[in-house]
Structure formats: C-alpha cells, structure tokens
C-alpha cells in the first residue's frame, strides 16, 4: 500500500499534464467563444468530481448513521472536505468564464445560486466538524450531510427545471458537443478523479493518525499522575 501511493502519484501527475496538454493544445477552438471556452475542461470535471465526492459523503454518512462505524465517519469528513475544494474551483472558474462570455461575473440564476448554496451547506458541515467538540458531532454532521446530498441532484437538474443562462449539461441534457471536445473533457475528468482519489487517500490517513494521537493524548492524561499532565 505504501509503495502504491507514490506510483499512483506519478501516474496521476502524468495524466494531469497530458490532460492539460489536450485542453490547451489538442482540443479544437470553439467558434463563438474562442480560447476562453477551454475553461470548460477544468470547470466541468471539477463539478462532476465534487458531485461524486458529495455522493460518497452521503453514502458514508448514511452508513455511519446505521452502523456508527468510525471509518465511515472519516470517509464522510474527507470527501466533504475535498468536495468543497473542487466546488470552490467550480465557483471560481465559472465567473472567470462568464465575464468575457456573458459580460458579467455573476448572476443570481438558479444553477449558479444553487451551486453556491450547496457549497455553503458543505462549508457549514466542515465548520460543524471543526468547531463542535460534542460527542454527538459526527451524528449531527451525518444528518446535515444527508440534507446536503439532496441538494446535489437539484443543482445538476436545475437547468432542466428553470430558465437559466447556464449552458445545457453535457451529459443527459439537451446540449451537444464535438466528439474531440468530449474526449478531452473525459480525459480531464479521469485525471481530476485520480487526483481527488489521491488527495482523499492522504487526507484519510492524516485524519486516522490525528484520531490515534488524540486517543493517545486522552490515555496519557488518564494514566498520568495528578498535576503532571501538559
């Protein structure tokens, strides 16, 4: 397992570099938007990756609610944290694309607003995990995660249900895409998914280690004679 991590790290770095090359050089230039459309190769895979991480968070939270399994709790925390990072990328790259194309950085349209609400839900989840020291925190966080996950399909399908400025979804929507662009998009998604997996892996190890250290500290204070605890 220890050896697999650096190997996967190198492979992911190669894949990310190749995906970047495809996005900047190989992908055809879009007729109306020009080069700025290439933001799509980072924006869309980041959104898909965030959605998948939030769904894993949902599954792990439900599992924790049923079984009270600490490993599921760690998976939920890790996927929420990495999901928020990817969702932040979506919320930052979106306006950078919108400014030259729409002429505005932001509009309170349903897709954009619901994505912001989704981000805020998971940020509040992380705040809850970080600042609440109650023994019930994982339980409350799991309940919040279940509510947050309900927002994910709403964000994705908001384009279908409401009039919005946002382009139609590439998958399962009314939009069409050049096969060469789709190929580049999927390679970028694969690269970002591998990257997210590695980040989650290292964050999982860190969290597990943190809990072991906290446990050791708790034992130390229990076993130490009075007045000698740091």
């Amino acid at each position: 397992m220890k050896r697999a991590f650096p190997i996967l790290g190198v492979l992911t770095a190669i894949l990310l570099s190749y995906a970047l090359y495809l996005a900047l050089v190989v992908a055809p230039t879009e007729r109306t938007m020009g080069d700025v459309q290439r933001i799509f190769y980072y924006h869309v895979p980041s959104a898909w990756t965030a959605f998948i991480l939030f769904f894993i968070n949902f599954g792990a939270s439900v599992f924790y609610l049923i079984k009270r399994n600490p490993a599921a709790d760690i998976v939920a925390l890790v996927t929420a944290e990495v999901g928020v990072v990817f969702c932040t990328v979506v919320l930052v790259t979106g306006p950078i694309w919108a400014r030259p194309v729409w002429g505005i950085w932001w509009t309170w349209d349903m897709r954009l607003t619901s994505t912001l609400v989704l981000w805020l839900i998971y940020v509040s989840y992380l705040f809850l995990r970080r600042f609440s020291s109650s023994g019930q925190t994982p339980l409350l966080a799991a309940a919040l995660a279940v509510l947050g996950a309900l927002c994910v399909p709403f964000v994705y399908f908001s384009i279908w249900f409401f009039r919005t400025q946002h382009p139609q979804p590439v998958m399962g929507g009314g939009g069409s895409i050049d096969p060469r662009m789709l190929h580049v998009l999927l390679i970028n998604w694969l690269a970002f998914s591998c990257f997210a997996y590695l980040v989650c892996w290292s964050r999982y190890r860190l969290e597990k280690l943190q809990r072991d250290v906290d446990h050791a500290h708790a034992l130390e204070s229990l076993l130490a004679p009075r007045g000698s605890v740091r």
Partner: peptide, 28 residues
Amino acid sequence: MNKTYYLFAAYTVTWIIHIAYLGTIVRR
C-alpha cells in the same frame, strides 16, 4: 482584456486552490 488572460487566470486559480489545500494537509 484579451480573452486568453481569462483562460490562464482560470487554470492558474484552479491550481492555486489545489496546491493551497495540499499545503494545509502537509502542514497538518
């Protein structure tokens, strides 16, 4: 402003966000 700047800005910001997060993991 040249539209290409927006493209490079988006890609750069993406990696700044990811590297900043990796930095917090390494620090922890």
